[in-house]
Design a protein around this nucleic acid. Structure first.
Lengths: 228, 228, 228, 228
DNA sequence: GATGAATGAGTATTCATTCAT
DNA sequence: GATGAATGAATACTCATTCAT
């Protein structure tokens, strides 16, 4: 069984490249899906995606074996953006503002994308995506964290997984307040950033240990509702 | 001539109590719904609830005229618990710890209950109830906030709606870690509480104004995926 | 198995009479059914009939084994009214006006009763009712017809079944025009009566033989939609 | 980019024709629907139609978006037949026999088709179509009537709506005798035609005014059992 | 005998997925 | 390879009928 085509940015194996027209269709479908999922959420039917992309439904299924696979492919393309953000974060004048930049940009991306937020929040699709995301971006985030801690600008008891988690949290706030106040997440980012600063006078040590790297995915898999 | 089982003007006197066996089934259904909704969200079919409760689908519809009515009935029982928590919060030794107690207990309840969170956040069902809940609890939370601010224990720029919002965020985002670490949200509550403390040395003022009381619901309603 | 209780006007066997309270309930149910079926047609649920009658649904089923049986019982009570009309018709000054009186009164009854019209038109219930009706009233109608023909006031080629059929026809017109013009049937009754007068100059003999007594019911049974 | 199968502005050019197999199935469905609706009325479920047509239920819904659309499609094909009949009626040797021809042919069509009668009489589905049909045919019938009256062959107090109404009555009431004698309605058509002839010696003028053109539909709409 | 609780087959419609053209 | 036709399980809800209280 041939492995799935994982798109342009895949740096692992590189499956046999698609014929030119097939690749064009693949892109069209991804673009249509991005647009429609973003605006109307993951519940839209693939028929509608196909219509939007100007291809037949059969073509969608030729490129993506299931709806889930399409959603995952979409998510993958975002990971590239995330990696780019992390890269930029290292160019910041100091470690703390680099970390802040990273979190801000992440929240911004999510604020504009209903489909992405639904993936993160409900994990109806893409159970393993968080694992993939972590593997791909964890090292970058980890270095951002460690740099800031080395500079004495970040609590010592925070971990790379915490940063990811906080971004989820912000995504959630985005989801809830989007219509009323599109930038609402900034309010809580600030609050959290204040809390993230290193101890000065009697700071409360964080209770409960951080998640171990693999635990988050395992947890998600169990908590998320099965597909109907 | 026997009157109808649920008289129109009830709510005060309560309708004639159900027959013993009917009441037993009603409870079974509520329990099944609580369990299934909690674990898998509000999208599960009533057929499945019925199967879980060991009754026919007709029985479910005899007790609850629509799925919405069942969801609301379930929610009603939670509402009392919430009010009780706010009451207890006032008995705390000082305003700050009262507020912390409230947030902790609320997060605890909500973290364990996917169905409840979906009701509160997407209001696909029971929209009126969410309004009722807010009206019922908002003044209590408001007093908790003001007391803490008057005592110099809480940032001046936080509002009642922020408190509720933060609890939502914690409960919802923690769904991801639920299985691995049911109390994982406490980690971020601590972080946020630290950020909630009043300014000492150069605290960042919160950007973006808080939501006005009515805005939150409006926003949630718009953010929610439309009913299919 | 005890035969069904066929109500007060039954003159054939007279089954064991009901207990007083049972008989009262039976009447209540029939009255409620008459009212509700008349106004809203035969599609209303028996639950609603029971509520209207102030009895439990179980009681309805104790008195009438199926919905069909209730509908039939209701129809039976009308047959008495029909018989009474025929009786009066014999008191008319001349045979022709007696026949006209009969047809007019029949149409009048049906004009006020949606349920009855539905029974006649769709025969969704009560397949055998027309047979019963014929057996009970045919001799009366037959005499009305023969008297008028003997007096030279009615075409010779009309039969008793024709009169019944024409009444059906009028019922149909009632059904269609009821809302716009409650007495609309009179328009066609007149037209038909004119056509029913005996031949004077070159009248067209009626084509197609009349139905034999048993044929009408047989036909109805086949044509009417089966119960869903 | 291929355009949608059914362009918005069609009706004139017609949408792109269906694939051969799709067209075959469409026909199968229409045939099955015609047969089943004719015999058992419009209340049969689409599941049953699908079974009858030997296709899946999804296929039915792919061709006809709702039950109503299927019913209307069926009706459309009949409408042409009706118009053709009116046209032929004008070719008759004299006005009276043209009118008779029209009534005869109409009754013939309708007597054989329960579904068609239900559409025309109760308009539970396809209300707009009935309006269309009337607008299309009313002028033709009106001319048939006026011609006959001008020739002194038809009562002066009959109107176009009466003609249509009488055909309904015949077709519908004859359902009762359908199986026994498919042409039974001819008996009453004759009777009525005799009554329709102009006054010679002491004819009874028709009481109750005829329906105005719009009233008939309004009435039918009100008489029809509400959709469940 | 009366009550009303319980049952489940049946309804129109949607949509992910498979397969013939 | 592309297309779109076909499929059928699933959903919320109703109602005639049966049965325990």
């Amino acid at each position: 069984m041939p492995e799935r085509a994982t798109g342009s940015g895949d740096g692992v194996t590189g499956p046999r490249p698609l014929r030119r027209d097939a690749e064009r269709n693949r892109q069209r479908i991804l673009e249509a899906a991005a647009e429609v999922f973003n605006q109307r959420g993951l519940d839209v039917s693939l028929d509608e995606i196909a219509r939007h992309a100007g291809v037949g439904i059969g073509t969608v299924y030729r490129r993506f074996r299931t709806k889930e696979e399409l959603v995952e492919a979409l998510f993958m393309t975002r990971l590239d953006a995330v990696a780019a953000i992390a890269d930029q974060a290292f160019a910041a004048p100091d470690p703390w503002s680099g970390l802040v930049f990273f979190m801000e940009r992440m929240a911004e991306i999510m604020a504009g994308d209903l489909g992405l937020r639904q993936i993160l929040m409900f994990a109806t699709y893409g159970r393993d995506l968080v694992a993939v995301a972590r593997e791909r971006n964890a090292p970058l985030v980890e270095r951002l964290v460690e740099r800031a801690q080395a500079a004495g600008q970040l609590r010592d008891d925070l971990r790379q997984t915490d940063i990811v988690f906080i971004v989820f949290l912000l995504a959630e706030s985005t989801q809830l307040a989007q219509a009323a106040s599109p930038d609402f997440w900034r309010r809580y980012l600030t609050l959290i950033l204040d809390g993230m600063r290193p101890a000065r006078e009697g700071i409360t040590p964080l209770p409960v240990p951080p998640l171990l790297p693999g635990e988050m995915e395992k947890s998600m898999r169990q908590a998320s509702p099965r597909r109907r």
